[in-house]
Nucleic acid binder design. Structure first.
Lengths: 118, 118
DNA sequence: CATGCTGCTTACGTGTAGGTAACTACCTCT
DNA sequence: AGAGGTAGTTACCTACACGTAAGCAGCATG
């Protein structure tokens, strides 16, 4: 079987799309990246993170933190001293997302200018 | 009024988050970037785009295309010859998203390796 | 004149993301 | 003992993203 020009175009296109879809699954949604940003800025405790992100609520935060944990992007550390202290830290692996976050940030700034004039 | 150290941390953190939130609003969701990728790969017609993206359906595609149009990322061009031909093209502005898409792609590839070993 | 392609739209349904409010269990401070 | 902080959980609700199936108008082809 021989690929037509159209087919090879679609193959390249798919090769581009599938990894993007994978990435979006992890990154997409209203909160995940914001939470990660907050943690990377040094907010480690639940309430700290909650306060740092305007209008997030504890239920959503708890759920998203679990998600980030299963994606190996944050680690939940329980210090069993009393009082119990719980910390969330960004994993080594999560730093691989920094470039993505940087580009999103840059584009967001640019988009704002595009909308409201520079 | 004087900023405490904690405050200035939060200010920097917010400054990072708000543009990211803006960007996510445009980029987030299952389909937008995939559709844009398809169009940038040279798929111009509705059915062409539909076929290029596995398991998308025409309702979603139509809606997302409208969204991308209002965000000025694609342009809908009607050729009034007979038979009527409709083309979707990526705008100049949409190319500003290429870096974001590239990073998402790169990270997606990397993440796949992370999950299934290289 | 039937079949099939294009570019959609419509009706209908489900699932999940996200929001609100209240509550708990534990600890501390006064 | 009461007020207040931490780290969530629970029940309930809503809205929208997304999916399925079908249909339609216009054109072309055998």
């Amino acid at each position: 079987m021989i690929l037509t020009e159209g087919d090879s175009k679609q193959v390249a296109c798919l090769a581009q799309m599938l990894p993007i879809r994978d990435a979006l699954e992890v990154v997409s949604g209203k909160w995940k990246i914001l939470i990660l940003t907050s943690i990377m800025h040094g907010n480690r405790r639940f309430k700290e993170i909650e306060r740092s992100i305007p209008s997030i609520n504890p239920k959503v935060l708890a759920k998203e933190l679990k998600g980030l944990e299963t994606h190996q992007l944050v680690q939940r550390i329980v210090h069993d001293d009393y009082p119990v202290l719980i910390e969330y830290v960004a994993t080594e692996y999560s730093h691989s997302l920094k470039k993505v976050m940087l580009e999103l940030h840059a584009w967001g700034v640019n988009h704002h200018k595009q909308l409201f004039g520079k």
